[in-house]
């Protein structure tokens, strides 16, 4: 498969009156079509900034961002963006929230809306208001909304960060299933090492001040992926070592 996203020599600084923040420096990355890449790093290392630049939400930077052979000039439906908050409009029902996001020629395509709600297993909730949904359900609606727009690439910024552990695990599995079925390229930003390793076929490790890519780890978990067992632990430990010294490594059992 071809390269869908190419980042060359990306540098981003935020300036205000008093200081200059080197949010990103010397970022080079290419992402293959259909892959699922996780980006991990501590707070403030520029993960969100990187994703927002790819998504076209941030347009002042040095370097090149090429999606599908074209330079990114702004946000578009092709680049689905899932924010940390679900960002559903509280005054619209689930169905109307999705409808609002659709292109003009798809506005009346109710079956498209239903289909995508069913992908996230929320078919019966199309007439609910966001206030009637749990955090996890609302985030799934946000995913359905992005999918309904048939993005070429889906950018997720800590999408499950605010959810409890159990819901998070369910949603990770749901996301993996969607990725396999829909074959959409995904980039997921997270600060959860387990999540990064479980989801990503590659894990991009970032370090702060200035935000740089420290290394890119290929993950081999076999199929189906498992959260337990030695393969997972091995891969996870590799990422742990990027953040902690050997002696600090949390103790893990291998049975």
């Amino acid at each position: 498969m071809g390269i869908i996203l190419e980042i060359k020599g990306l540098k981003k600084t935020f300036e205000d009156k008093s200081n200059v923040v080197n949010a990103l420096e010397d970022i080079n990355l290419s992402i293959e079509e259909g892959s699922l890449v996780s980006v991990i790093g501590g707070s403030g290392c520029g993960k969100s900034t990187l994703l927002r630049i790819i998504g076209g939400l941030e347009t002042e930077y040095e370097g090149e961002i090429i999606v599908d052979g074209k330079a990114v000039t702004g946000p578009s439906r092709e680049k689905g963006f899932i924010f940390q908050d679900h960002r559903l409009l509280p005054w619209l029902t689930v169905k109307e929230n999705i409808r609002l996001s659709l292109p003009e020629e798809q506005k009346n395509n109710d079956s498209l809306i239903r289909e995508n709600l069913e992908i996230v297993e929320l078919g019966e909730f199309e007439n609910a208001y966001p206030s009637q949904l749990s955090g996890g359900m609302a985030q799934r609606v946000a995913i359905a909304r992005a999918l309904a727009n048939k993005p070429r690439i889906l950018l997720l910024d800590e999408p499950f960060g605010a959810l409890d552990a159990i819901t998070k695990i369910h949603l990770q599995d749901q996301l993996l299933r969607i990725w396999k079925e829909e074959k959409i390229t995904m980039i997921i930003v997270t600060h959860d090492i387990d999540e990064a390793v479980y989801l990503g076929s590659r894990v991009v490790v970032m370090t702060p001040r200035p935000g740089r890519i420290k290394r890119i780890e290929k993950i081999e978990l076999g199929t189906p992926r498992r959260r337990t067992g030695s393969l997972f632990t091995q891969e996870r430990d590799k990422i742990y070592k990027e953040f902690f010294k050997e002696t600090e490594l949390p103790f893990t059992y291998n049975i």
Partner: peptide
């Protein structure tokens, strides 16, 4: 943030 959403979906 809703205006940012509107940008993403080209509303």
């Amino acid at each position: 943030r809703f205006f940012e959403l509107a940008e993403v979906y080209e509303i």
